[in-house]
């Protein structure tokens, strides 16, 4: 009998701890498949964040380094500078990257660090229990925004891809989503492109992936996917913000 599908070698056999309906699992698999398809698992070093994906080091089947909250791009910088031929990626959520780690991500991009950042934006702090993130939408409720996010009180949601696309060293910036199958395919393409750009040594690459958090959003998985589509897509438009061709 022919094998039509097999588990990617990029993931360990450890069972994910993620909640039902969480899209981290999908994104992990996409990253792992890309690493396998590019045949770089043997020289990959991943940097895990603090947040729901804190245990990413147990799931990716390559060398992993667990960073402090927000510091993954700095840790990745240290690794990449020591081993320029390795393939270094950070996997970060929106609390990690867009709040406590803004300096680190901006300056990794600014230096044009030859690393790849997988940025999972689900508009909320997941692991700590649903607090407001910089990316939480206006009116969206969170445990620290019980009346809904108010722009007057805490500003408008931060658009990370738009912001990073103003930086020269960021050679690849693309926002994608995993709310349905066709977008999941596009997400994989973007992740692959970002890693290829690192392999070519062109500079910093980031893929912002709109993701769901049914648990903290208080929805079923299906409602979550629908909510993402109806609420996040209008504010966080999908698309490529920078590619090397455009930069040059």
């Amino acid at each position: 009998m022919a094998v039509v599908f097999d588990r990617t070698k990029g993931l360990t056999s450890k069972i994910f701890h993620y909640c039902p309906g969480c899209t981290h699992g999908v994104i992990h698999r996409l990253v792992a498949e890309v690493l396998e398809e590019l045949d770089v698992l043997g020289k990959a070093v991943g940097v895990a964040p603090v947040g729901c994906s804190v245990f990413a080091y147990d799931y990716f089947n390559c060398d992993m380094h667990e960073a402090a909250h927000g510091r993954a791009p700095a840790v990745a910088t240290g690794i990449k500078r020591v081993h320029p031929d390795s393939v270094v990626f950070t996997y970060q959520g929106d609390g990690d990257l867009a709040s406590i780690g803004t300096a680190e991500i901006i300056h990794a991009a600014h230096r044009g660090e030859k690393i790849t950042t997988i940025f999972v934006n689900n508009a909320i702090y997941g692991m700590t229990g649903g607090q407001m993130a910089p990316t939480t939408l206006i009116g969206q409720k969170a445990t620290t925004a019980p009346y809904g996010r108010d722009a007057e009180h805490c500003g408008m949601p931060l658009k990370v891809s738009e912001m990073l696309s103003t930086i020269d060293g960021a050679k690849f910036v693309e926002r994608v989503s995993v709310h349905n199958a066709s977008n999941i395919r596009k997400t994989k393409k973007a992740i692959k492109k970002a890693f290829e750009i690192q392999l070519k040594g062109e500079g910093f690459g980031i893929v912002e992936i709109l993701s769901t958090c049914p648990t903290n959003w208080g929805m079923t998985p299906l409602e979550g996917l629908k909510w993402l589509e109806e609420n996040m897509l209008p504010y966080y438009p999908l698309g490529n913000f920078r590619t090397p061709g455009e930069v040059e």
Binding site: V45, V47, H65, A67, A68, R71, A74, V75, A76, T77, G78, I79, K80, R81, V82, H83, S86, A103, E104, I106, H107, H110, R111
Partner: peptide, 20 residues
């Protein structure tokens, strides 16, 4: 490498030390 802050600098050290 001149880091963007002392926080980033020590975390670069953390990465480089882990890398051997």
């Amino acid at each position: 490498l001149q880091a963007e802050s002392e926080v980033a600098a020590i975390n670069m050290v953390y990465g480089a030390a882990g890398a051997g």
